[in-house]
Computed example of a mutant assay.
Amino acid sequence: MTGLSAYSLLVVLFITSGVVIATEENNQIIIKNNCESKMGMPCVWEVLNSIFKIGSVTSKCCDELVVLGKVCHFALVTRTLESSNFQNLDRDTIIQKSIDTWNNCLLMTNSPSPSP
C-alpha cells in the first residue's frame, strides 16, 4: 500500500506545476511548451508506470507521448527526479527507462499498421 501512495504522489508531482522543486531551465521548457496539458491523465499514468515501475505503453498513449514531444517528455522526467521526494530513486535507471519508453513509442508511431 505504501508503494501505491508513493506512486500516486509521484503522479501528482509530475503533473502539477509549482509543486516540484526544479531547475529554472526545466520549468522554462515546461511552461514555454505547455507540456503539462498535452497528455490525457490515463496516458500520463501509463507512461509513468512504464518509467517508474514496470509496464508498457499502448499505441494510443504512445501517440500522445510523441505529440507531447521529446523536449517536454525529458523535461518532465528530469523535473520529477530533481525533487527531494524522489532523490532515493536510481537516476540512471529512471533516465534509461525514460529513453527506452520514448524510443519504443517513437518506433510504434512510425511503424506501419499491420495488414488486416
Rank of each mutant, 00 (worst) to 15 (best):
N49E: 06
N110F: 02
L65I: 08
V71R: 08
S17L: 05
L81F: 07
I51E: 01
L10N: 04
S17I: 03
C72T: 05
S5E: 13
N34D: 15
E24R: 06
C105L: 06
L48Y: 02
C62M: 08
L13M: 14
C72R: 01
S115P: 09
D92K: 14
E64R: 02
V12P: 00
S59N: 07
N34E: 15
I31Y: 03
L89T: 10
D90S: 11
L48H: 03
C61E: 07
S98P: 01
E36G: 08
L81M: 15
W45Q: 12
F52Y: 15
V47S: 05
V11M: 09
E25K: 13
E46F: 06
F14V: 07
D100E: 11
S37I: 09
S50D: 02
N49G: 09
E64N: 02
D92F: 04
W102H: 04
S98G: 15
I51S: 00
K38A: 09
A22D: 11
E46G: 02
K60C: 00
N110Q: 15
P114Y: 11
I95W: 01
L107A: 12
L76E: 03
V66H: 00
V47I: 15
W45I: 15
D90K: 14
A22L: 07
W45K: 13
C105N: 04
K32G: 12
P42N: 12
D63G: 15
E82F: 06
T2V: 08
W102D: 02
M108E: 15
C72I: 09
T80Q: 11
E46C: 07
C62N: 07
T2K: 14
N104C: 03
S50M: 06
T78I: 04
E36T: 15
V12L: 13
N85F: 14
T23A: 04
T101V: 14
N88G: 08
L48K: 08
V19T: 11
S83Q: 06
P42E: 09
D63V: 07
V11S: 08
T93C: 01
S8K: 04
K97R: 14
C61T: 05
S115Q: 10
N26S: 10
L81K: 10
I94C: 03
E24G: 08
P112A: 11
W45R: 13
G40R: 14
C62H: 07
T80F: 00
I30H: 01
D100C: 01
T16F: 07
V66R: 02
C62Q: 02
F74G: 02
L10M: 13
T23Y: 02
D92R: 10
E25N: 09
S59E: 11
L76Q: 04
L65A: 05
L4C: 12
T109F: 02
Q96S: 15
K53V: 05
E64P: 05
N34A: 13
S56P: 00
C61R: 08
S98V: 02
I15F: 03
P112S: 13
M39N: 09
E36Y: 10
T78A: 09
H73S: 00
P114Q: 10
